[in-house]
Design a protein around this nucleic acid. Structure first.
Length: 682
DNA sequence: CTTAGGG
DNA sequence: CCCTAAG
């Protein structure tokens, strides 16, 4: 038989000692699974740290919002910008580290984020190298600071970052280089390297023996790369995720850092991948709303918490299923758009005033850019009992937006705008919140309502509500709480960046994230949404009771991006949702081919695990289907093919592998042990 | 839950 | 991609 060079060698190797083992793979695979799981758990803590870091980064991004927009416009610019900020962040972290170390008392968890943020936000200052070095020196000691997890985590983060960030650059370049499909000859090889290096699965699960036995020369690199990737991927990844990642606020609320609470218990376990994901998603939104909710004494918190944990129980695939039902990116706005200063006050108390404000503004209509203060304020003119209110911004009711990752930022904006218009078109009404309570009685005078006193400023809030559907029965309290997602600004960035060369890696578990390379991070963008949706989706379910369950909108054409005021109906029939179409990128195909070459055509689950473990949106069924189409594609004339052209080389390999494995299967039927085959082939 | 196939 | 029968 004639196989492409690489294929043949690989196949043979497989057929040889390997094949015999192959059959066992499934078992090991299961074992792997558990392993992975374990790892993920153990890394849960890190997540907290990362989240924190993310938070900081988030601040940065927030601050650079405007520039961000610009960057998005000019695609290429983004990554760079992000990285820079990241570095800054890094600096901050280091600094921070110092402080913490010096303080020695990490208990003041609340202060940590504060410090970090402030510094970040006011990144104006130059970092003094001295502190930096000091920080490095103290790294070890830092880690020992176990008392306050926050501090500890932070230390960990810094630890991770600082050293790595340096290398990061190089690595990135490296990866980039390998990413660029050079001569077709080495293409697959490169890809394999890439995957090896990207694929966490391999890292934690792949049994060394198997690997080494593999005749290919890629393996050696394997270990090496893995290490590296494990050590720093954070950086890049973080950079991306940062925009989205939660911030300290979140941490606190989540209980990871927060000293108090019931939440703590519930949350803690969730400091796992899933949770973090959710958190990321919720990031800004969450941040914003959190105070509000607390204010209202709502249960949403727990809601949010549980969701993740709930999902955690499920396995990957299950999760996927859940997620898949709605790959939607949602953009929801807390209806209580205008938060009284009181809430902000609280926020600031936690040391995130700026962040909150920023976020707030970002999410709102940006009515008043540049002002970090409260969204509205009253210039109480004690004069003649007139109450002057200045509403700086309003938040619109929830919005559910679905937009392809490939969409441009511009289209995203447009989409959002449309969504907003849609809501506005339906008519809006203004809600007044006083002391966190909705003032329903329109006939009351402000005075009667207690509005107008000095305190008012701190307790008055406005909200925009859809004029239509809303039923009075809905209690404002909990509904939106759970839907605090925000589009991660990152997305666009990620998107724009280096294409989706390495498509298959999203991050799920901390461990996985660790293995991610900068590029992987890039790719994550796509995964992110898959991540997003889950949250959104789960939320609706959980909160179905609430008024504004999100109504999964039938995905309009990918380009258009569907927008729906999530308030329309209370039900969330995400069930019937058809997953959005996500064409396989060449990189993905490459990975698939590679995996199939090794594993064969009948073990899709393993293929999934091996090459797409991180691609949460690719199920083994998808892979199987893709293979099917690939085989078909390979057998038709290039002119008949559609979509992103797949390198002929890959198609050839597809056919070869297909032929090989089907033959293998055939021989297996008659009960011919693979070993025999191997011998023959050899 | 996975596979394997048809739709 | 979805849906399902089978295992």
């Amino acid at each position: 038989m004639v196989f492409p060079k690489r294929s043949s060698s690989e196949m043979e190797s497989c057929a040889g000692s390997q094949v015999a083992e192959m059959p066992h793979f499934p078992k090991s695979a299961r074992g792997k699974r558990s392993v992975r799981k374990k790892e993920a758990q153990s890394q849960g803590q890190m997540m907290c740290a990362f989240d924190l870091l993310a938070t900081v980064a988030g601040k940065l991004l927030d601050e650079g919002e405007s520039s961000l927009g610009n960057m998005s416009a000019g695609a290429a610019g983004c990554p760079k910008g992000v990285r820079v900020k990241q570095e800054q962040c890094d600096e901050e972290v280091k600094h921070f580290k110092n402080e913490v170390t010096d303080q020695d008392s990490c208990n003041e968890s609340a202060i940590l984020p504060h410090i970090a943020i402030q510094r970040v936000v006011s990144h104006a200052r130059n970092e003094d190298p001295k502190a930096k070095s000091e920080a490095q020196d103290k790294e070890s000691s830092m880690i020992s600071c176990t008392k306050a997890e926050l501090g500890c985590n932070f230390g960990a983060i810094a630890d991770r970052w600082s050293p790595e960030s340096v290398e990061s650059g190089a690595f990135t370049g490296d990866a980039a280089a390998s990413m660029m499909p050079p001569a077709t000859t080495g293409f697959h090889k490169i890809a394999s390297d890439m995957y090896n290096l990207l694929d966490p699965m391999d890292v934690d699960a792949k049994p060394p023996p198997l690997v080494s036995s593999d005749s290919t020369g890629e393996m050696p690199l394997y270990g090496d790369k893995i290490h590296r990737s494990i050590s720093f991927p954070r950086g890049p990844k973080g950079a991306m995720g940062f925009a989205v990642d939660r911030d300290d606020d979140d941490d606190k609320s989540s209980g990871c850092t927060h000293p108090s609470t019931a939440t703590n218990t519930g949350f803690r376990p969730n400091c796992t991948a899933e949770h973090s994901r959710v958190k990321k998603l919720l990031a800004c939104k969450y941040r914003k709303v959190a105070p509000a909710r607390m204010h209202r004494g709502d249960h949403s918190y727990s809601d949010v918490d549980r969701k993740p944990s709930f999902r955690n129980k499920k396995m990957h695939y299950t999760r996927q299923r859940t997620q898949r039902s709605t790959f939607k990116r949602r953009k929801m706005f807390d209806r209580h758009s205008v938060m009284a200063s009181e809430e902000f006050g609280r926020a600031s108390g936690k040391g995130n005033t700026k962040a909150t404000a920023r976020c707030f503004h970002a999410a709102s209509f940006e009515a008043n850019k540049g002002t970090n203060s409260m969204p509205f304020q009253k210039s109480c003119e004690s004069n003649d009992s007139h109450v002057k209110l200045r509403i700086k911004s309003f938040k619109v009711p929830e919005l559910l937006i679905e937009i392809p990752e490939t969409a441009t930022v511009g289209s995203l904006k447009k989409t959002v705008l449309e969504a907003v218009n849609a809501i506005l078109g339906g008519g809006l009404r203004v809600g007044v919140l006083h002391h966190g309570k909705k003032v329903r009685d329109d006939s009351k005078t402000l005075m009667q309502a207690g509005i107008g006193h000095d305190d008012m400023l701190d307790n008055l809030g406005f909200s925009l509500e859809p004029n239509c559907a809303q039923n009075p029965s809905q209690v404002p309290a909990h509904e939106d709480a759970s839907f605090l997602e925000t589009i991660d600004t990152t997305e666009p960035l990620a998107r724009i960046a280096p294409a989706d060369s390495s498509s298959k890696h999203g991050e799920v578990d901390a461990s996985q994230e660790l293995a991610l390379t900068p590029f992987a991070a890039t790719y994550q963008g796509s995964d992110h949404d898959s991540v997003h949706s889950p949250v959104g989706i789960s939320s609706p379910d959980k909160v179905s009771t609430s008024s504004r369950a999100i109504v999964p909108v039938p995905p309009a054409d990918s380009n258009a991006g569907a927008v729906v005021p999530a308030n329309k109906s209370k039900r969330s029939p995400e069930q019937g949702q058809r997953r959005i179409r996500r064409p396989f990128s060449v990189a993905e195909v490459e990975a698939l081919v590679l995996a199939v070459e090794k594993l064969g055509t009948g073990r899709w689950r393993d293929v999934k695990l091996r090459a797409f473990d991180n691609a949460k949106h690719r199920t083994y069924v998808d892979l199987k289907d893709k293979w099917k189409t690939l085989v078909h594609t390979a057998s038709i004339s290039p002119q008949q093919r559609r979509g992103e052209p797949v390198p002929q080389e890959l198609l050839d390999r597809v056919l070869a592998a297909q032929a090989y494995w089907s033959q293998q299967q055939a021989k297996l039927q008659p009960k011919t042990p693979p070993l025999a085959e191997a011998r023959l082939l050899t």
